[in-house]
Design a protein around this nucleic acid. Structure first.
Length: 563
RNA sequence: UGGGGUGUAGCCAAGCGGUAAGGCACAUGGUUUUGAUCCAUGCAUGCGCAGGUUCGAAUCCUGCCACCCCAGCCA
């Protein structure tokens, strides 16, 4: 077992930090931050960044802040803020009292922008968005200077204060850094620092009508919070010169260093916020917390454990290589945790009634025995549960075959099988309806096999069962991967065309062992021989149980059958 | 045809001039009252390609190739 919270494996970022400490950079301190924009729900890709930032701080005895990078009020709202906080807490990380907002630095940011103007490092530009695109040039041709580039400092100061005062309409003016319109790095071609947006902001209300851009805000926010190592994803690599340029010009006491790493990709799913939103908006899934979604809320509802996600993030490592991680790695981390932590129970998903005809007492009446199987085969501390063995039971239809395939170890006509935790039984007769469907099996049992091996023969198969009389009826939702294509983003065609039509299968009338009456929403179990299931966070009720398949057990038999 | 990055097994990933860790997946055995778990074994004469330096190169040098990112008043 990996102990993710205490020892995280090294990576290139840790190496950089050790080197920094050796040189006493940042006075040997480590302070990181996780900076989401509250414009959507967090997904498994964010979990990688969260784990990286929090465990890096932890490894070096530093701290990690939570900062909402909320500089674009058009796309943000408090619902997202709350969901993000909830997901991070659920994952098991604590930002303590360090919950910050870029928007709370708006005053300071404005002052620093004024300083830039005073120093001749920024100017107010009147180019429209369309014009500024034309002036920017392209990848192979340099841009042209804005006609306003040499405007006087006094005039810039006046215009900028009037922008702030609300004298102009949206996009009428912008504040731009004066850098180099011919730079081969597009980000350095006089990037826009402030834009006019007459927009209500979820934190600052209507106080501002100008909002700072990411490139101006992020580095300064980092510096103000005393961040030492600003970890972000690879696509911001080209922004680093600008990050450093701004910090050099505003002259703050701290100068954090930006370090980029590759974001997470997993096959058979998508990680784009835009596309995830589309799935929700077009009702292709049932909301952001649909158990098939790679969102943390979805994974939580699916039954993923926080530890499994943390371990997964640890297992995949942190590098600068674009990669596509096999979802099997995620499922491995999940099963590894669930196997150790989930109590076992029996649940018959596709019930088939069987009658143990010779299970009778001395008077010829129906017999019954209360059995007490362990909740976990290797962890006695989980205790035992009670289940009554009766004459009438349910088994799964898949555990009986009239014409068994080669290697079949389950029940067949005239064959024997072990009922898990109970007796060895033999099928004597198959009852069918007028259409030829099997409706019931007539069996006998070997009374000497309760807790004992059968005499003189081997019985290989073991199947699960539930007593008919006190079975608990439930709805069980079976989930499978959302996409049939390994890389829905890159494959030819629209990613929506690759949605797996069988990604959800709802089973009604499933029969659970009675001990499951105690299950509360979000309780997890291993339904033996089937997989790991969780009581649905939203819809599970003890009198109307709803369970979600989290992940199936490894199934070498099923795999072999499909070949 | 500008700039910035990245190439180690089917998938992740160590490696930092001394002769290819580990995990996932897969395969084969063993244990097992879950076809699960667990245990054992196997799985790169090879590090994008081609040259070069060196006693010695995945590691250093040169050239090439492939892929990713950048032309929002998004982050």
């Amino acid at each position: 077992m990996t102990n993710s919270m205490t020892e995280s494996p090294s990576n290139f970022i840790h190496q950089i930090i050790r080197e920094d400490q050796k040189n006493n950079k940042h006075n040997g301190k480590v302070h990181t931050r996780f900076p989401p924009e509250p414009n959507g729900y967090l997904h498994i890709g964010h979990a990688k960044a969260i784990c990286l930032n929090f465990t890096t701080a932890q490894t070096f005895s530093g701290q990690c802040n939570l900062r909402f990078d909320d500089t674009n009020p058009e796309k943000e709202n408090v619902e997202f803020i709350n969901s993000i906080k909830s997901s991070i807490s659920w994952l098991g990380f604590d930002w303590e009292d360090r919950e910050f907002y870029s928007s709370s630095y708006f005053d300071r940011l404005y002052e620093l922008a004024v300083k830039l103007v005073e120093d001749g490092n920024a100017y107010v530009c009147s180019l429209s968005p369309e014009q500024s695109r034309e002036y920017r040039g392209n990848l192979t041709e340099p841009g042209k200077n804005s006609p306003d580039r040499e405007r006087s400092i006094e005039e810039n100061l006046d215009l900028f204060s009037r922008m702030e005062a609300g004298e102009f309409g949206d996009s009428e003016y912008s504040l731009r850094a004066k850098i180099d319109m011919a730079s081969p790095n597009m980000n350095m071609r006089d990037p826009i620092l402030y834009r006019i947006r007459h927009q209500h902001h979820h934190q600052t209300g209507d106080e501002w009508c100008i909002y700072p851009m990411y490139d101006f805000t992020h580095c300064i926010s980092d510096a103000l919070e005393g961040i030492t190592h600003s970890l972000c994803s690879l696509e911001f690599e080209d922004h680093r010169p600008l990050y450093d340029w701004v910090l050099d010009k505003v002259d703050l006491p701290a100068h954090p260093q930006q370090i980029e790493f590759a974001r997470l990709n997993i096959n058979y799913t998508i990680m784009s916020k835009r596309k995830l939103k589309q799935l929700v908006d077009e009702n292709l899934v049932n909301g952001w917390d649909d158990p098939r979604m790679p969102t943390l809320e979805g994974m939580r509802r699916r039954g993923y454990t926080p530890a499994s996600i943390r371990n997964f993030c640890e297992n995949i490592g942190v590098t600068r290589t674009n990669s596509m991680v096999d979802v099997a790695m995620l499922e491995h981390a999940l099963r590894e945790d669930l196997d150790q932590t989930s109590p076992r129970a029996m649940a018959v998903l596709r019930p088939l009634k069987i009658v143990i005809e010779d299970y009778l007492d001395g008077q010829g009446e129906d017999k019954e025995e209360v059995l007490t199987p362990s909740r976990h085969p290797k962890d006695e501390s989980m205790g035992k549960r009670e289940i009554t063995f009766r004459r009438e039971l349910y088994i799964d239809r898949n555990d009986f075959e009239e014409v068994p395939p080669p290697g079949f170890k389950r029940l067949t006509i005239g064959g024997e099988v072990r009922l898990r935790g109970a007796y060895v039984i033999k099928c004597e007769e198959v009852i069918k309806d007028a259409e030829g469907n099997i409706t019931e099996l007539r069996c006998t049992h070997d009374a000497a096999t309760l807790g004992a091996k059968p005499e003189g023969r081997k019985v290989k198969g073991v199947i699960h069962w539930v007593p008919l009389q006190d079975a608990l009826e439930a709805e069980v939702r079976l989930y499978d991967r959302l996409f049939l294509e390994e890389n829905p983003d890159k494959a030819d065609g629209d990613y929506r065309d690759f949605i797996n039509p069988d990604s959800i299968q709802i089973l009604q009338g499933c029969m659970l062992e009675p001990s499951l009456k105690q299950a509360q929403a979000e309780d997890r179990f291993q339904f033996e021989r089937e997989g790991y299931f969780v009581a649905d966070r939203e819809e599970h009720k003890s009198d109307k149980p709803v369970f979600n398949l989290t992940v199936g057990l490894r199934d070498t038999w099923g795999k072999a059958q499909n070949k």
